[in-house]
Structure formats: C-alpha cells, structure tokens
C-alpha cells in the first residue's frame, strides 16, 4: 500500500453546473448501460432464446394450422418482425426496470446526489436502454434466414431505425413505471399486467384482421401495434412478388375506421408517445426522494 502522506491532496473545487455538465451525465449514464450490456455475455447470448422459441416452435406450429390461408408464405416470415419487436420490448423494459435494482442496491443515491438535473439522469437512462434494446433487436436479424426473410441491407436500413424508435419509447415507458416502483418484486406484476398485454395485443403473433370487435379495439389502443406494423411492412416489402397475395391476407396494416394509416404517421405516433413517456419519466424522477 502506498504511503498516504506522500499522496498529494486534491484542491477543493466546485462543479460548475449547467448544460455541459448535464450532457456529460447523459453520456456517462448511456455508457454505463453499454458497459453493463457488453459485460453480460450470458445475457447477450441467451436473450434471443425466447424470441427464437416463439419463432421456430410457435411459428412452425401455428403455420401448420393456417397454411391454407397463407399459400406460399411461411407463417414464420409473418412472425419475424413480431419476434424482433418482442426482443426489443423485453430488453427495453428490463433495462428500465434495472433502475429498481439500482435503488435497491444503493447506486441510485450516487446518481440522485449528483449536481446534475434529474432529467439528465432520465435522458441518459432512456438513451442507454434504447441503445441496448436496439442492439439486442439487431441480434435477431441474424436469424432472418430461419424465417425465410432475405438478408436485404435496404430492409435492415429501415428496420434498425424503427427498432431504435420503439426501443426508446418502451424504455421511457419502463423508466416512468420504475420511477414509481420501490420493490424488485413489483417487476413480476409489471410483466404480467403491462408487458404481456402490450405484446399479445400488438399483432406481433397474429394478424390484426377478422378479430372480434372488443379485441380489435384493444389492439388499436396498444401503442406497440403502431411499432410492429411498420416493421412488418418493411419486411413484406422485401419479399418479392410471389408473396404479394399472402402478404395482403396476413398483413392488413393498421387502420382507423377503414382508413389505412400511413407508415409515417405510425412512426410519428410512436415518437410522440416516446416523448410524452420521457416527460412522464422525468416527472416521476423529479418527485423521487
């Protein structure tokens, strides 16, 4: 051990504060998320397991039942954007909920006493969680071939920003919830009552067509529907002409009262929700002691 008396002391200084300091905090919190993500190799490798199980087992099983309606199209191709959304959804919510662990293990206080605005902490967390969820979603793209989805660079160029957008919205949503959660145990409740309904109603697993009225209404309320649909449109646009008829059957697209919602508007809806969730997350942290 070094001799303490030889250690020169550090002069007293005061943090200057201001926008520059807040930006540094945002960047550092973002980096922490990435460091933790990169370090957890097990999670990186095992995380695609559940979406793959859905794709390969559920997708194949359901495909066998409904093959007469889908014609040439593999049902797994339909499910592929759904399982990407699933991967992004679960990773984003998990990242956000890790705030509750931070609180449980005390690290949250290290952040809360810092001379930066609480909103900087929230923005950093949301960007970090969104980045991690997007990366996790990208690992699913590797398996496109299993669902007979082409490895098309132009399709990836559309899918990845869409993933990033929905990842951000979902992380902000999760952060807003986590701001009000005090116990790790509540995580299960959030999964059961919030995350699974969001997922099942989103059209990730079945086409949103010919459903009973009540279910149709719920799917249109589910914000995730407006994120899965653009991703599916991107995939189906790259399948070639032979799949066009089946695509029409399986990919009705989101509509309101018979009005077909353009992709751009869907993405605007997701983005607007993301920003309001971010506002909500900031509010819930501003009040936290």
């Amino acid at each position: 051990m070094a001799t303490t008396t030889e250690t020169p002391v550090i002069s007293v200084s005061e943090a200057r504060g201001g926008a520059h300091e807040d930006l540094r905090a945002v960047a550092m919190i973002w980096r922490r998320e990435l460091i933790r993500f990169g370090r957890n190799r097990t999670r990186l490798i095992t995380a695609p397991a559940q979406p793959l199980l859905f794709l390969l087992v559920l997708g194949t099983g359901l495909g066998a039942v409904i093959s007469r309606k889908t014609g040439d199209l593999d049902f797994r191709t339909f499910m592929f954007p759904g399982v990407i959304a699933m991967s992004v959804l679960f990773t984003a919510i998990f990242s956000a909920i890790s705030i509750v662990w931070d609180r449980e293990f005390g690290f949250m206080r290290e952040m809360l006493v810092a001379p930066v605005h609480r909103s900087a902490l929230v923005v950093g967390k949301c960007l970090g969680g969104a980045t991690v969820a997007t990366l996790q979603g990208c690992t699913m793209l590797v398996f496109a071939g299993l669902a007979h989805v082409p490895y098309s660079p132009t399709m990836f160029l559309v899918l990845i920003p869409e993933m990033a957008l929905v990842a951000f919205t979902l992380t902000a949503f999760g952060t807003m919830i986590a701001g009000r959660m005090s116990q790790v145990e509540s995580f299960q409740v959030v999964m059961q009552l919030v995350v699974f309904p969001l997922f099942f109603l989103s059209g990730a697993m079945f086409p949103l067509k010919g459903l009973p009225g009540w279910l149709m209404v719920l799917t249109k309320i589910d914000p995730l529907s407006y994120a899965v649909d653009p991703m599916r449109r991107a995939v189906f646009a790259h399948l070639g002409h032979h799949a066009a008829a089946a695509a029409h059957a399986l990919n009705p697209g989101m509509s309101w009262n018979g009005w077909f919602i353009p992709t751009g508007l869907e993405l605007v809806i997701v983005a607007a929700l993301g920003l309001s969730m971010l506002g909500g997350a900031m509010y819930s942290f501003a009040k936290a002691e």
């Binding site: 540094r24 931070d102 690290f107």
Partner: peptide, 23 residues
C-alpha cells in the same frame, strides 16, 4: 450502505463519478 455499481470496475465507478460530479 454500499452505493457502488458492482458490475463495473473500480476505474469505471470512479469515472462515472467524475463525469456526474463535474470533475
């Protein structure tokens, strides 16, 4: 109570602090 991030290194914990506390 402990308020370190146990999944980061010692250096990373200190760097985190330096960035948030305006060093």
């Amino acid at each position: 109570d402990m308020t370190l991030d146990e999944y980061l290194t010692a250096d990373e914990n200190l760097r985190f602090h330096a960035e948030l506390y305006g060093v």
